[in-house]
């Protein structure tokens, strides 16, 4: 009997699988087709202070091995999420969820974080400083060490729950940014958010997406995620939620060997609604195959020797 449990910032997860923000809504659609209690946790759609419609359509394009999205943080606003979505989640998920916090100013990040901080169902605050699809916020903070440090410091001071900062891969040196977050008290890091990308339609000679560029996710970015998790693990001592193109239990093990404590599943949920559940159920057999008894033992295992 293998042990799949891990500990993320002091909270025990029965397994490291956490559907990633923006690919799982607020859980409702998936709760209708399987019991979400098989998951380690799941991450809420990125939430801002006020409701946001998001970006113009088309918001979706495709690559050879992934999806480009420019949804632009469509969400009903933090108050509605707390009043309507969290009580609904209580009806189908007994564990704690990860709240994904977005903002267009330091003040907004703090206010949204404070509201989620008072919700017992929320176990972790994932601070999204890496959304490539909005201007004046999101990735604007996440592409410099200084911006990342400012947001981390402001949120860390304002809340009690673990603060996990979600990093963008669209930078020259992700380690410098990871270090800045750790120095300001981040309890963990999530990486990677999507990779800034574009498609052009030869028939119209225009970009496919309504907002020109979008974020690429899916198997195309998996090796990039492995490389960045590896580098960040070498740089910081705080736990990492590794994500980016994960679609199998073997991918989960690979990202954990690179240094992830927990693993996000994103685009795979959009193609196969049962993907996260199936990865969870395939994990014990995959561990057996590689002689892994306790999953925690392999975290960062590729760095030894």
């Amino acid at each position: 009997m293998v042990n799949t449990s891990v500990k993320l910032c002091g909270e025990e997860l029965k397994n490291p699988i956490i559907p990633a923000s923006g690919t799982f809504g607020y859980g409702r659609e998936f709760a209708g087709i399987y019991d979400l209690n098989c998951l380690g946790s799941f991450t809420l759609k990125g939430t801002t202070e006020r409701p946001r419609f998001g970006n113009p359509r088309p918001r979706i394009a495709e690559g050879p091995s992934g999806i480009l999205n420019s949804v632009g943080l469509q969400n009903p606003g933090v108050d509605t999420v707390i009043e309507r979505e969290l009580p609904a989640i209580a009806g189908f998920f007994s564990g704690k969820v990860v709240a994904n916090i977005c903002g267009f100013s330091l003040g907004e990040y703090v206010r949204v974080a404070e509201k989620f901080d008072s919700c017992p169902q929320v176990g972790w605050l994932e601070v999204n400083i890496s959304c490539p699809n909005v201007h004046g916020g999101g990735m604007g903070f996440g592409t410099t060490a200084r911006g990342a440090a400012e947001v981390t410091r402001a949120v860390r001071r304002a809340v009690k729950k673990p603060v996990i900062v979600k990093l963008t891969p669209n930078v020259t040196d992700i380690c410098e940014i990871a270090r800045a977050c750790e120095a300001e008290g981040a309890d963990g890091l999530s990486l990677i958010n999507t990779v800034l990308a574009m498609r052009i339609d030869p028939a119209t000679r225009r970009p496919v997406l309504g907002s020109m560029t979008g974020g690429l996710s899916g198997p195309a970015v998996f090796p990039l995620a492995v490389r960045m998790v590896w580098q960040v693990y070498e740089t910081v001592g705080i736990p990492i939620i590794g994500m980016g193109g994960v679609r199998s239990a073997a991918d989960v093990i690979e990202l954990m060997l690179a240094g992830a404590t927990a693993v996000g599943v994103g685009a795979a949920n959009l193609v196969d609604p049962f993907a996260s559940r199936d990865i969870v159920s395939a994990l014990p057999e995959e561990m057996d195959k590689f002689g892994i008894e306790n999953l925690v033992d392999i975290i960062g295992g590729a760095h030894n020797g």
Binding site: G22, E29, K45, G54, R57, R59, V71, N269, L270, V271
Partner: peptide, 26 residues
């Protein structure tokens, strides 16, 4: 509508309605 997932998870096909944003797929 051009869709990402087709079952309400990605918000790729959202339109404006008189009752607010709605997903064409869901």
């Amino acid at each position: 509508a051009r869709m990402g997932c087709g079952f309400g998870a990605c918000m790729g096909c959202t339109i404006e309605t008189k009752d607010g944003p709605r997903r064409v797929c869901k």
